[in-house]
């Protein structure tokens, strides 16, 4: 069944399937976090948004207490959940100083940002947020840091585009150039792949982004898409 079968507004199966897969991914082990830790981070971020009045509770906030997490991890999740405007390099260093590695930092940002994607969409079409699944897997995270990652001027290391980034870069971005946003989460390649798949499906791919006459979405033109994007980014005070 379509994840948004209760929506008055049409959501095609491609987008619904992507969102279902995204939701499920949060309850699975990642590269740095266990299933329970990732679920707790996601629920903590929802709790922050509910407390700020930005969305309504669907009763899954208690999952935030399902794993022992450092206070700095919860603080990071809550700040990113509210847009990330209060995150700067000093804060990043504080989180690192609390014992959270750069890979775990990136994974937390990715989990929270991907859940905000789902929750803002749900609010937009007028349905409740889809409930988080309880973690079911106890498999340990791989804790693998790609050796291609280097300092590209972000808070965290990232994997440069091919050829410098090697095979892992090609597996994330293909063979062409990759904008900074596509590389943002690449210290955790699985998070970067998910971010890039969402952009390809719901915004533009690198192949189509420079065709200003093309619209990737039904019922809206390219300028209309960019107008919504610009307003959202202004509200999130996102310079990028």
């Amino acid at each position: 069944m379509n994840l948004y079968a209760d929506s008055t507004y049409p959501v095609d199966d491609t987008h619904a399937a992507l969102h279902r897969d995204e939701l499920r991914s949060l309850a699975h082990p990642g590269t740095w976090g266990t299933a329970a830790e990732r679920t707790a981070i996601a629920a903590e971020s929802r709790r922050a948004r509910c407390e700020a009045g930005l969305q309504e509770s669907v009763g899954d906030e208690a999952l935030a207490d399902g794993a022992e997490l450092p206070a700095a991890a919860r603080d990071l999740a809550r700040r990113v959940a509210l847009g990330g405007m209060s995150v700067d390099r000093d804060f990043f260093e504080q989180v690192r100083g609390a014992g959270i590695g750069a890979g775990a930092y990136v994974e937390i940002v990715g989990v929270v940002a991907r859940l905000a994607h789902l929750d803002v969409f749900a609010r937009g079409i007028g349905v409740s947020s889809r409930p988080l699944a309880a973690p079911t897997e106890t498999r340990a995270p791989r804790r693998e840091r790609p050796h291609e990652a280097c300092d590209e001027g972000f808070f965290v290391p990232s994997i440069p585009a091919a050829p410098a980034g090697g095979a892992v870069a090609e597996s994330i971005y293909g063979k062409g150039p990759a904008a900074n946003i596509l590389r943002s989460l690449s210290l955790v390649p699985d998070e970067a792949r998910r971010l890039n798949r969402i952009l390809d499906t719901e915004y533009f791919s690198m192949a189509s982004i420079f065709d200003l006459t093309y619209s990737s979405l039904e019922g809206v033109s390219r300028p209309q898409i960019e107008l919504v994007a610009a307003r959202v980014s202004a509200l999130n005070q996102c310079f990028y």
Binding site: V80, N180, L195, Y240
Partner: peptide
């Protein structure tokens, strides 16, 4: 909402 959080984060 995703892009902004990744970029700011």
């Amino acid at each position: 909402s995703l892009v902004d959080r990744a970029a700011n984060g």
